[in-house]
Structure formats: C-alpha cells, structure tokens
Design a protein around this nucleic acid. Structure first.
Lengths: 182, 182
DNA sequence: CCGCTCATGTAACTGGTTACATGATTTA
DNA sequence: TAAATCATGTAACCAGTTACATGAGCGG
C-alpha cells in the first residue's frame, strides 16, 4: 500500500514532478504566482512539508552551492511517483469530484440579508469580476498549445469554463432578484 | 466598524438568521446534511464557535428545557445582523469571486503522471460522478420554488450549472487525451 | 553600496478535524 | 428495553497561516 498524502502534499509532489528537480523556494513561487489564492505557499507550510516528504522517502534531497549560497534540490523518488499517482487517482476521484467550495455561492445563499440596493451592487460587482477572470483565463488558453502541453491547456480551459458558468449563474440571479421597472 | 468574521462564522450567522433561532446541534445538522463536505459541522468546531460569537455580542443565548434536557437557543443580535451583512458583501465580493479550489482541476493538472489507461479510467469515473451530481442538483431545482424562496433555488441552480460546466470540461479533456482508434 | 531577489528557516497562532464522553428523550 | 436520536461538551491533534529572522548574490 502507498502512503496517503494530503491535497497540498499531492500538489507539491506534482510540482516537483513537473519541474523534474526543484528547490522549496521554487515551489513557493509556483503557489505565489498562481491565480488561485487557496494556498499561500508560505515558508512555514512548504519547508516542513518537503522535509516530511523527504523523511517519508517520497522525495530525495541534494544540496547545491553557488558560492556560499546553499540551496536544496528535491527530486521525486520511485516511491514518490507511486504516491503521486495514487493521489491523482482514479481511485479517489469520487471524492475529488464533490461540489467544490465556493465563497460566492455561499454568499448568494444568504443574499436575502442584504437590502435590495446592496444586493444589486453585489451582483453587478460579481459579474464584473467574473468578466475580468474570464478574459484572463481565455487569454491564457490562447497562449497555450493544446497539442504540446494538453494539461496546462486543460487547466486554463477549466478555469475559463467554470468562470463562464458562474457568470451565467450570476446573471440568472440578477434576472431573478433585481427588480426591473417596465 | 464591524467585526470581521471567518467563512464558517459568516455561514453560521447566516444559518441562525435563516432559522431565526436555533441550537448548535441544529446548526451541525445543517452541515451534516449538506452535499458539500467542506465543513464537517463537528461538535469541536460548532460549540466553541457559537460561544465565541455569543461572547462577541453577535449572538444571544437562551436556555430552554424539555424535562431534564437542556438546550441552547441562539439568536442573531443587531450587531450580529450587521456582521452577517458585511460578511456577505458587496465589499468583500471581489475576494469571494476568486477561482474556487477544485480537487478535480488540481488532479487534471497532473494527469500526465498516469498511464494512458488509468487516465481514461479517471475521466470516465469523473464523468459518471458528475452526471450523478447534475441529476441530483437538477432534481432539487425542480423541487424548489424560485418565486417563494429564490435564494435556495439559486443555490441549487449554482450547483447544477457548475456541475454541468465541469462535465463539459471533463468531456473536452477526454476528447483531447483519450486516443481514439479510427 | 543600497535595495531587490534568492533562499532557508522557525515560533506563535488559528481554525478546523477526529475521537471520545456524558446523559436525556423518543421510537421500534 | 434496546437502539436511535437529541444535545452538549472536551482533549489531542494537524495543517496551514502570519510574522519574523538570517544571510548570500546581483543589478542599478
């Protein structure tokens, strides 16, 4: 049996796999550069995590010096690749398919607390933000080559598609909630 | 200025508002009955949380006895309603609109680690799960009255629309990744 | 040489989890 | 009367956060 890894651990294993070999610092940069703010990639999260994976035999470290400056290069082990594979699936995929958390959806649920004008404001603001998000995601889609790197492309496509669906939903909400004067 | 509440706190305030007056136990049931497994509604989360909100003046408690059995009835205060409103928005809505975390999307990003057959399996499984999810969500939509309770209706619509978008996306991924023999 | 980025690291905290414990009341 | 549900509560734990600290190397 392979060791069970958390979401962040799986994700880090994936990043190391993608980059073949990388420093914890580089891993942090990936999180910090990501449009998804769910994980901050804080030092306090990443450094202990890679050491944990290393001591579990999923990663292998190598020290590297440029002058006096030390850095740690991590690489996937065979066991690490196994763990990454079993994290991805397909065994666990029924869990990963569950309805994702969405702060926007959560707020719409309680939109009844707001007075009508603020509700309208909320919906307009959300619509605007989503349009920005769609624009960015679709721009990224166009910049990627679906044949060369289908996975990055699909990632961007996913973001774009979800954003479009959320936009359509917010528009439906506006239709339903905002009083129109005839 | 109104006190800043966390996601779970805002959600609990919303639930108390929805139910007008309720026990922590009832709040837990809401989470446990929810199709979204993000919060477990564990006792260790809810009881300390409502006490925190109470001592912050956002909730008011009243004890209630049926025979020997004690229960605590919580109710929103004026301050609590304020806090709930400012949690919902629209001020914070640009944060709440950010790309939601999605374990499925995360896994698709690293789908390259799987061998082709497992990848196909993964996609087929995800597609199946999403179909189930859509069926359930759309059933709930039909059972709700958009005029009478537009917020619950919109919640269900949101789940259904997102699930449909994810399905379309997974099908696009299948199209792109699964070798078809001509 | 000053400030930025590279790079590693830790301490205190927080917001949740699981797992347990207790006891009253209701239902089969 | 046994089992399920109602109802409150705590202790140990865990993963990730903010905030800090240190220091090397590089570009203007």
């Amino acid at each position: 049996m392979t060791s069970k890894v958390t979401e962040l651990e799986g994700c880090v294993l994936g990043i190391v796999w993608e980059m073949d070999s990388c420093t914890p610092y580089a891993i942090r940069k990936v999180f910090q550069g990501s449009p998804n703010p769910h994980w901050s990639g804080s030092a306090g999260a990443i450094y202990p995590l890679v050491r944990r994976l290393e001591s579990g035999g999923l990663l292998r470290v190598r020290e590297d010096y440029t002058g006096q400056r030390r850095r740690e290069l991590y690489k996937l082990t065979a066991k690490g690749l196994c763990a990454l594979r079993s994290w991805v699936g397909p065994e666990v995929s029924d869990w990963s398919v569950t309805i994702p958390v969405d702060p926007l959806r959560l707020r719409v649920r309680f939109l009844g607390v707001l007075q009508s004008s603020r509700r309208t404001e909320f919906l307009a603001h959300a619509e605007h933000q989503l349009l920005v998000q769609i624009k960015e995601a679709e721009k990224e889609c166009r910049s990627l080559d679906a044949e060369k790197d289908p996975f990055s492309y699909l990632l961007a496509r996913g973001v774009a598609k979800i954003a479009r669906a959320r936009l359509a939903w917010i528009r439906e909400a506006t239709e339903l909630l905002v009083e129109r004067r005839p």
